[in-house]
Design a protein around this nucleic acid. Sequence first.
DNA 1: CAAGTGCCTTTATC
DNA 2: AGATAAAGGCACT
Length: 290
Amino acid sequence: MRIRLDSSTPLNLDATLCCGQTFRWNKEGEWWYGVAKDKAFKIGQYGNVLEFENVDENFVRNYFSLEDNLPKIYAKISRDKHIKQAVQMFQGLRILHQDPWECLISYICATYKNVQAIKLMLLRLSCRFGEKTCFEQRNFYLFPSPEKLAKVSISEMAECGLGYRAKYVKETAKAVYEKNFDFEQLSKKPYDKARQELLNFSGVGLKVADCVLLFSLAKTEAFPVDVWIKRVILEYYSEHFPEEFVKKIFDKRSPTNTEYERLSLFGREYFGEYAGYAQEYLYHYERTKR
DNA sequence: CAAGTGCCTTTATC
DNA sequence: AGATAAAGGCACT
């Protein structure tokens, strides 16, 4: 099956899948292989044609956020030369609509880890506890359900390389499973309200909550601040903060909640309702500029 | 190649 | 409120 993209719907599949927002995709030749929802599928891009197998068009349109009007978003976030350059370089990078459950666990695992290590953890977690599914004579593994992870022991999870995160994943899985937590409902709530709810989960702080809101709950105003974004702010946007504040956060490993809010709020106010898009372009730009 | 540093931070404690 | 420490282990230099 295929989708023909028109000029007002740019897509950069490679940048979208390798920019660090999602962790379970692999490129083999011209095809990206991934597992989303309940099956494995592959997708490739040839110019303005998007081709895929084993998945329906509606899912692809939603997962890759093809309804997001990128030209309009670029117009809104392009406030200065830095974001303009990042947008220029990665035109067509889209914020995905990932599965919120998988996204939540992924970002709990992601704390204080690099992207390669996060991928490895999630791969091991899926292979060990996820349901097996076959596609093109090969085995793929679905992301383990809340019920499954709620019942796995902490030490078993730790064996997947989660370390101290195993406890948080277990507790969050238990909470989601036992309350039958409704992510659909959560996505309907406004940013602040939804964020407050996510903070109740074990292992979820402001940064993780913002990632889940942005990457799976369509809250495009969320502006996650990790070490790279902190770096971006210090390098390009420090004049928007008092000198004292900049000095203070400069050599800290991570900001306090108050400092985090100040940085994140700057992003939301400066870039507006699509601040999350600006965040991801700047993040990818900073990480790949060498 | 060993050793050091860093990683899309949160939690517990003071 | 803010400072501090601790918490896997993989990857990169």
